[in-house]
Each structure stands twice: as structure tokens, then as C-alpha cells.
Simulated scan of single mutants.
Amino acid sequence: MTDAEHTRLLVEVSTDYYLDGLSKVEIAKNRGISRFQVARLLTEARDAGIVRIEIAAPAHLDAGRARRLAERLGAQEVVIVPGADDRDTTREALARELARVMAARVSSGATVGVSWSRTIEAAVRTLGTLPPCDVVQLVGALPVHGSGNSLELIQRFTTMAGVRTWPVWSPLLVGDPATARGMRQQPEIAAALDRADALDLAVVSIGSWNATGSTVYPQVTEAERRAATEAGAVGECSGRLFDTRGRAVVTPLDARVVGVTLDQLVRTPDVVAIGYGTEAAAGLRGAVLGGIATVLVMDDAAAVELEHLLADPPAGILDHL
């Protein structure tokens, strides 16, 4: 057998096995050789580079992908969770991962700030327990149909031994700035919001500034929505708005919010932010760029869109990456 004929045999046997799915026994029978000869030919084909095997982990299991995203953004860590066919299942998967990330970061004696979203609420339900610590409610209540609110969430922590809570007994959004100022001056609320100046860890949600991405957006007037959009708002965190670079977007809406400020989050050393869906990507990027978030937990759809945004950033964004 010439070298060319032997090489052709290597290609044909490899095609039979790897592409056509024939067993070694079947190949041996078809070609009149032993199965041990087939095995040696397959090994030789791999050694010669005729067969190259590549193992590609699914995107959500690719730790290198998450690490690259974190490095590109300047985040401490990025966690990517596989998405599902429906939002509820995706939210539950994100909640379980958020609970794991949160539990790993809470140390005894820490002061932990917790905002509210449906995902954070679900995460707290699966959290189990925490070391003795202070848990600060970061936002007033914003009831959403079909779920709880921040007041109900903070009460879950009261069942954990050694955990002291600092509630905010107020709506997140009130009717006018004067009422908001009055609420923020109430002793219990003031004490909780003051504690937000010295957080060790915060857990927040990042939403996009539109009707489906933010629980706040549907609660405000069309004039307030338009003013925020025209001012450059792309993301929302605890009722506070920010632009593509994570800079605060201050509109009259801001004065009606009872809750943590973006400045307080920026001063917090460890902020875990959750976001999911394609539309959340711009807000997640802005949150890291502005120092609002240090750790991101997202689904694959958000990760894919974030990768696209980082590959083709708007003018001026590159200066911050």
C-alpha cells in the first residue's frame, strides 16, 4: 500500500467512525480488517492531525467566557446562567444562582443592603440562612401584581437567627418631593437609609428604562418617562436612573423616590447586581462603568447582547473600558 493509499484509508476510516457513526466492528467487517486495526488507524489519524476533536462547552458552562466579560467590563466577577423558554423559569434559575453568590459573600458582622425585584425576592426564599449580620432594606415598597414587595422581603430575614433588620416603612415612590422628604426624615426610615452609607455588600437589580424592563417605569407619568429618556436614561436601579456610562440621570422623578442613592451604592465595596434578557445589557454595562455594581449575575441572553455591545461600543464608551 502506497503512502497516498494509506492516507486515504485513514481519512475513510475516520469518516466512517466520526461522521457516519459506524462502530469499529462494522468498519472492520466492511473493510475486511480487524477491529484492532481500525482502532490503530483511528489513533494514527488523530496523531497525524487528520482528525481534530474540539470540545465546546455550552455558553453558560464556559467559565472562560464569563471571565473575559468581567475583564472587558472591569467587573470583579460575571456569572452567566442558562436561560429558559419563559421568563419565570429563567428568573428562578437566576434566583438560585444569586442566592449562592450572596451567601458566599456575607460574613459575620457584615452590613448587607438588599433592594427589591422579583428575582431578588425569589433568591431570598431559597437562601436558607445567613451568618449574624445586619440587613438593610434599600428601597421602599413597590407592590407588583403577582409578587411581593420589599417590606415582605425584609421580613423573611427576621426569621434568621442573629440577623438584625433595618426596614424602610414607606412606598418606593410617593406623590411629591415634599412627601418623600418627610418620609426620609422619619426616624426608622432615616436610620435604615443612613445605614446604607456603610454597607459591606449590596444586592440590587438592574432594569432597562422601558415598560417591560423596569417595575418603576409603568408607575410614573408619561411626562416623567419622556423626561428621563430624553435625559439619557438607559438603566434603573432601586428607582434611580443612569445613562450608558453609569452616570446618574436626575429628573423630577428622583425627588419622589424613597430609597438608596446611586452614590451610596458606588461607595459600597461589593455590589451584586442581577439582570436578565437582551434589554438589560446596556444597563448592566452602565452599572459597572459607573461603579454602581462590582459583580453581575445574568442570563445567557443578556450575556450575548453584552458581548455585542462590547464588540461595537458607542463613541466615547471605549475611553471607560
Rank of each mutant, 00 (worst) to 15 (best):
G182C: 15
T90A: 13
T43N: 12
V266M: 13
L42M: 02
G259D: 00
T268M: 00
T221H: 11
T278I: 11
Y276H: 15
V288N: 00
M1I: 07
T165G: 06
P218I: 11
S214Q: 00
I206G: 12
T43E: 15
G239N: 01
P58C: 10
W166Y: 15
A190T: 10
Y18I: 09
D134N: 13
G207P: 04
A211T: 15
V174M: 04
I55D: 11
L10N: 00
K29H: 14
I50F: 08
R156D: 11
G140V: 03
D16W: 11
L321T: 12
A202M: 02
A192C: 05
R247K: 08
I206N: 08
A196C: 01
R65C: 08
M298W: 02
N30T: 15
Y217P: 05
A315W: 11
A95K: 03
V163W: 07
I53E: 09
V13Y: 10
S34I: 01
V81G: 02
R156V: 03
K24T: 15
V163I: 04
L321V: 07
D16Y: 13
G182S: 10
T229P: 01
T268A: 01
G162N: 06
D299M: 12
R40M: 02
V234K: 07
A228N: 03
L284Y: 05
T7C: 10
G232M: 11
A66H: 06
E305F: 12
Y276I: 11
A311R: 02
H145E: 05
A233P: 03
T2Y: 14
L318Y: 09
G175Q: 13
A104T: 08
T2G: 09
R65A: 09
Q137L: 09
N30P: 12
P171E: 07
A223V: 05
S107W: 13
V78I: 08
S214C: 01
L265W: 05
E236D: 13
Q155Y: 12
V272Y: 01
L42Q: 00
R96F: 07
R96H: 10
L94S: 04
E54F: 14
A302L: 01
E77F: 01
D312W: 06
A45Y: 00
G239A: 03
I50E: 05
S170K: 14
T251W: 11
A211F: 15
V79T: 14
G286N: 01
G21S: 10
T111F: 09
V25N: 12
R96P: 06
V78H: 02
L296V: 09
R96E: 12
R40N: 02
E121K: 03
V135N: 06
L142M: 12
R40H: 05
P269D: 08
P218T: 13
Q76W: 06
P132M: 08
E121N: 04
D47T: 05
E307R: 01
F242P: 06
P171K: 06
A110R: 12
D62V: 06
G182M: 15
G128I: 00
Q185H: 15
R240M: 14
E224M: 11
A190Q: 10
E54S: 10
A311E: 08
G128A: 05
A180G: 02
G128M: 02
G239R: 02
Q186T: 08
T2V: 12
A233R: 01
A141M: 14
N149P: 09
A28E: 02
V124S: 10
M183I: 04
Q76A: 05
G148W: 05
A202P: 09
S238P: 14
L262F: 00
A311T: 06
D299T: 10
A303E: 01
A192G: 10
V304K: 07
H6L: 12
